[in-house]
Simulated assay, not measured.
Amino acid sequence: MSFKSFDELRAACTNLWPGDEVAAKAALARQDTLTKPQGSLGRLEEIAAWLARWQGRAMPKLDKVQVVVFAGSHGVTAQGVSAFPAEVTHQMVANFAAGGAAINQLARAAGAELSVVPLEVERPTGDFTQETAMDEADFLKAVSAGYAAVAEDADLACFGEMGIGNTTTAAAIAAALFGGEPAKWVGRGTGVDDAGLKRKAAAIEKGLALHKAALGDPLRIAAALGGRELAAIMGATLAARHKKVPVLLDGFVCTAAAAPLLGLDPAGLAHALAGHVSAEAGHRGLLAALGLAPLFDLGMRLGEGSGACLAVNVVRSALACHTGMASFAEAGVSQG
Rank of each mutant, 00 (worst) to 15 (best):
K4R: 14
A11P: 03
L16V: 04
G19Q: 05
E21H: 07
Q31N: 15
Q31Y: 07
Q31L: 09
D32Y: 08
K36Y: 13
Q38A: 15
S40C: 09
S40Q: 11
S40R: 06
I47V: 13
A48I: 07
A52F: 02
W54V: 00
G56P: 07
A58W: 00
Q66D: 12
A71V: 05
G75N: 03
V93A: 10
G99V: 07
A101C: 11
A112Q: 07
S115Q: 14
L119V: 14
L119G: 07
E122Q: 14
P124N: 03
T125I: 08
T125C: 12
T125P: 04
Q130M: 05
M134D: 06
E136G: 05
K141T: 14
A142D: 04
A142C: 11
V143Q: 01
A145Q: 09
Y147V: 05
V150F: 12
A151R: 15
A154Q: 04
D155P: 02
L156Y: 00
E161H: 05
I164T: 03
G165L: 09
L177C: 12
G179F: 14
K184Y: 08
R188Y: 06
G191L: 07
A195G: 15
A202W: 02
K206L: 10
L210W: 00
K212H: 15
L219P: 02
A224W: 00
G227N: 09
K244S: 09
V247H: 02
F252L: 12
L264I: 10
A272L: 05
G275W: 00
H283L: 01
R284F: 03
A289R: 14
A289N: 08
F296C: 11
L298R: 09
R301Q: 13
E304G: 11
N313I: 11
N313R: 14
V315H: 00
